[in-house]
């Protein structure tokens, strides 16, 4: 039953570009990006209980490193993605080591993650090689000569790319959740003191989650760089980016495989529809999306504190 539902959903998603226009595709691409980033954050917070409010750092490094490699050395982003991943994991390793070695936990750990993202923002603002505050631009290949090898293509190409990445990330999380990793992470999240008393290596379990999360987030960065084709430190590393990507997993259900998917599928189209509506009405209301997200977040936490998916799964009988 579950597999049938998944197959139908998969077939439907594969057929979408046949019927959808550019705008619908762009919204769906956004949804898939948020699924990918939400799954990354879900690993660290949802499964391992480590609060990060600086995931923009890993997405940003995953964007800048492949973009720079491509611009300066002509390296394909399909290879550059691994360099971006390495950079994100290195940064995550340093943050994780500081936090875990010195017992910086909970909100203080979150502050540490914010600080590092801010440092990156300021540093990239002033680095000549990254284009500084003026931004980094990736030239567009003329129509017809675009190639997937260079991650250059139209909306349909990016639709399938981001769909694949979102599905892949969800698959990875589903596998991790059942593996020995997920099992140890949940134990460490539920009760670190008891886990430690059993001889579980807290440092190692948490560090693994942090590194996996950063690696996954960095993949989203490649899409950010090569889909939008411009990067500004003030945007890429902005704290609002870090906060935006945690909404879907929280609303959908932390520590569940489907939570970030459901959250992103609800949140992103709702936000886009609202923005379109406001524009339609001729209102000048910047930030209306943020306000709506905030209200929705409050509403969900109020009514379904563990998120929409656990409740929905029970209703559908698939939990």
């Amino acid at each position: 039953m579950r597999w049938v539902a998944l197959a139908v959903l998969g077939a439907g998603l594969l057929a979408v570009p046949a019927v959808a226009g550019r705008y619908e595709l762009s919204v769906l691409i956004l949804v898939f990006q948020f699924v990918l980033m939400g799954q990354a954050w879900n690993v660290m917070m949802g499964y391992a209980g480590q609060l990060s409010l600086g995931h923009a750092l890993y997405v940003g490094l995953g964007a800048y490193v492949p973009a720079l490699l491509w611009l300066h050395l002509g390296v394909s982003p399909l290879i550059g993605v691994f360099a971006g991943m390495a950079a994100a994991m290195l940064a995550a390793g340093v943050i994780g080591w500081l936090g875990l070695r010195f017992g910086i936990e909970g909100v203080y750990f979150a502050l540490l993650t914010i600080a590092f993202a801010e440092i990156a923002r300021v540093a990239f603002d002033h680095l000549a090689i990254t284009g500084g505050a003026g931004g980094l631009f990736l030239p567009v290949t003329p129509e017809g000569r675009a190639s997937w090898w260079m991650l250059d293509g139209g909306p349909v190409f990016f639709y399938y790319l981001t769909l694949g990445l979102a599905a892949g990330a969800t698959g990875v999380v589903a596998w991790l959740a059942r593996s020995r990793f997920g099992f140890l992470w949940r134990a460490v999240r539920d009760d670190p003191v008891a886990a430690e008393a059993l001889g579980v290596n807290l440092f190692r379990a948490r560090m693994q989650a942090i590194l996996v999360s950063a690696a996954m987030a960095s993949v989203a960065g490649v899409v950010v760089a090569f889909y939008y084709r411009n990067l500004f430190p003030g945007q890429v590393f902005d704290m609002s980016r870090s906060l935006e990507l945690i909404l879907a997993p929280i609303i959908g259900g932390l520590g569940t495989v489907m939570g970030p998917v459901v959250g992103a599928a609800l949140l992103t189209p709702a936000g886009e529809a609202l923005a379109a509506l406001v524009q339609e009405l001729g209102l000048d209301a910047p930030g209306v999306k943020a306000v709506a997200y905030g209200l929705l977040l409050i509403a969900v936490i109020w009514v379904r504190p563990s998120g929409i998916w656990p409740w929905l799964a029970k209703r559908l009988g698939v939990s």
């Binding site: 539920d190 059993l198 001889g199």
Partner: peptide, 19 residues
């Protein structure tokens, strides 16, 4: 009695044998 509430009894026991 620090058991892991969201894990099953068998999973809790398994955790004791991680070393």
């Amino acid at each position: 009695r620090q058991v892991f509430p969201s894990l099953s009894v068998a999973e809790n026991l398994d955790l004791g044998a991680m070393i």
